[in-house]
Amino acid sequence: MTETDVKICASHVSKVFTGGCHFIKVLDDISFSIQTGEFVAILGPSGCGKSTLLNMVADLEPCKEGNIIVNEYHTDQPERHRMMMFQEAALFPWYNVLSNVVYGLRFKKGLTNAERKTIASYYLRMVGLGHFERAYIHELSGGMKQRVALARALAPNPQMLLMDEPFSALDALTCEHLYKDVQKIWNMQHKTILLVTHNVREAVVLAQRVIVLSQRPGKILKDFPIQLPYPRSVHDVSVSALANELTHVLHVKGDDDYASCI
């Protein structure tokens, strides 16, 4: 791999929130780099600063200590080559499903409105919601909403996809379907994907590499490569074995951290 293949490069990133008269150190000296086309998961316990880290990569949160370089540029504004999926679907209820997907395409140059609609409905069909173009958001189930959010994030054909626990509110069966969808899409388009999750199996099923964070303040405990062939399923024995191993890492190192806190 050459230098130019690095898509996201974080070096010595720390983050402190000041609330009133107290400080919360959320992230502690995080450094990692992600190659173009790589699928990386950030795994960590709840409240360890995963969302904060992802928001910093998406430039929704300022990065004061350390720096994050995305696509070889110092970033200062969220752009369309980075799309983000949130914990909740964050769809706009005043638009219907199709218009929600079109929304992300409005700033793409050189497209007519008709072309935007065609692209949007193509991605809706890809996530299996071709028949729901005219539906309103409140008429969809939670899983369908996340699918629309996925289509909306994919439609502008971003180079990079940032996902913040997009499946954490869904049932196991829906999750399995979406895991398949995401693997399929990643195989087809080879985007750089950064997925934040607290679900060990989810990380193992999807990612090529798992970065394990500790309890708050989040430090990198381990950078864990997953060398299993795609497509993977949550039911694979090898996936379970690796998930166990990762859980062990989280527990052992995490408990050490607890001990040092006390």
Binding site: L60, M84, A90, G104, R106, P156
Partner: peptide, 10 residues
Amino acid sequence: LYIKAAHTMG
């Protein structure tokens, strides 16, 4: 969240 989402879409 709406504003964040709209921001990331430009």
